[in-house]
């Protein structure tokens, strides 16, 4: 998929891993927040998960060999 996004930093291996850790751990915090009725925190956490997904779509991937 070729998008005009040259001005954006590429999604490096380290960034991918960071995103993976976030997408894996945030739902746990989200679950805890929902169970303890901290709804604003839960909304914030869900927003972060969505932002992570958007980052995967928007940021260009580092080309692989």
């Amino acid at each position: 998929m070729k998008l005009k996004q040259n001005h954006l930093p590429a999604l490096s291996l380290r960034a991918s891993l960071l995103l993976f850790v976030l997408e894996l751990s945030l739902p746990f915090w989200l679950y805890a927040a929902l169970n303890s009725e901290k709804l604003i925190l839960a909304k914030l956490l869900f927003g972060l998960i969505a932002a992570g997904m958007l980052a995967i779509i928007i940021l260009p991937e580092k080309p692989k060999r």
Partner: peptide
């Protein structure tokens, strides 16, 4: 995922809580 979230919010009446638990 983004498409599913948008469609479920806008057309299927999903609340943010439904989506949050779906992600869990």
């Amino acid at each position: 995922w983004v498409t599913a979230v948008l469609v479920s919010l806008l057309a299927f009446g999903a609340t943010w809580k439904v989506l949050a638990y779906a992600q869990v």
